[in-house]
Simulated scan of single mutants.
Amino acid sequence: MTTVTTALTDSRTMVRRNLVHAKRYPGMTVSMIVMPVVLLLVFNYVFGGALKSSTGGSYIDYLTPGMMLIIPAYMVAGIAVSVASDMTKGIIDRFRTMHFSQPSVLTGHVVGTWIQGLLGVSAMTLVALAVGFRPHADAVGWIAALGLIALTLFALNWLGVGFGLIASTPESASNMPMPILLLPFLGSGLVPTDTMPAGVKQFAEYQPFTPITETLRGLLMGGAIGHNGILAVGWCVALGAFGYLWSTSVFRRRIK
């Protein structure tokens, strides 16, 4: 069996392990999915009336694309805790005694959490449709939107792996990604950046979630995307590459 084949086989095994673990202990996964859905309902029904005028149309139509990206942000904390648990509870030492591709442990976490995140975004979309979300996207638009969400999830998951590897305990791992969890709220996900004070507006316009949100909103609602599409993909590739290189480097040092 070649090295590539071994790596793929072991990665598939680790993905299955991650999904089985999520099924047996669903608390973390459920909270990472349910909380964004609750926030969608809270912002729509509690603040929607006051914020509707700033968006120039149906607030749920404006809100939903931004809230979809909260799930990838929340999953960063989940994968960080999962990786930190593996690193501190001895399972990695057991794996080291076996003949397997060591990076497959990280791949299993990333792909397994990626699948859970996509299911969470699907659930949020169904809830949004039930409360009035009316997208104008055709089949191509939906495919492109799903691709962007999948790419965002994949990139942020690698960052989450890095946080989990440098954390001393699972508890500290849950707190490290807090800045990433806040970014969707400090962009154009809830209100247009034009309504923000000067300093906050400048930060919002230059952080990664704003072009990703605007691209997703344009794809789903049939609006203009402009240069946001290039920025969105560029941010995802940059964050994913950094997270991958960071995670694999730290992991190699930890298992020596």
Rank of each mutant, 00 (worst) to 15 (best):
G243S: 12
N18R: 06
K52R: 15
F133M: 02
M176T: 07
S54W: 07
H109G: 12
V105H: 02
A80S: 14
G108Q: 04
T169Q: 12
T13Y: 11
T210P: 03
L69Q: 01
K52E: 15
M28V: 14
I60F: 05
T248W: 08
S168T: 12
R96I: 15
F133L: 06
S104L: 10
E205T: 07
S172W: 04
G117E: 09
I212W: 06
A123C: 08
S104I: 08
D93R: 14
A128N: 08
G147C: 07
L129P: 00
T5W: 02
A73H: 03
F43L: 15
A198K: 10
T9W: 06
F203M: 03
T210M: 04
G222I: 08
L182P: 01
V250E: 13
G27Q: 11
F47L: 15
T248M: 15
I166C: 05
L181Y: 04
L245W: 09
L159N: 04
V140A: 13
Y206C: 00
F47T: 01
S54Y: 15
I180A: 00
F209L: 13
H99F: 12
M68E: 01
V121M: 10
V121G: 03
G189T: 02
A137T: 05
G120D: 11
F242V: 14
V191M: 12
S172A: 08
S31L: 14
T88W: 05
F95R: 04
C236A: 14
G199K: 01
M87H: 04
P208M: 02
A128Q: 09
G48S: 09
G218K: 10
L190I: 15
Y25G: 03
H21M: 11
V131T: 07
G108F: 09
M221S: 10
S53V: 12
F251E: 14
T169S: 14
A130W: 01
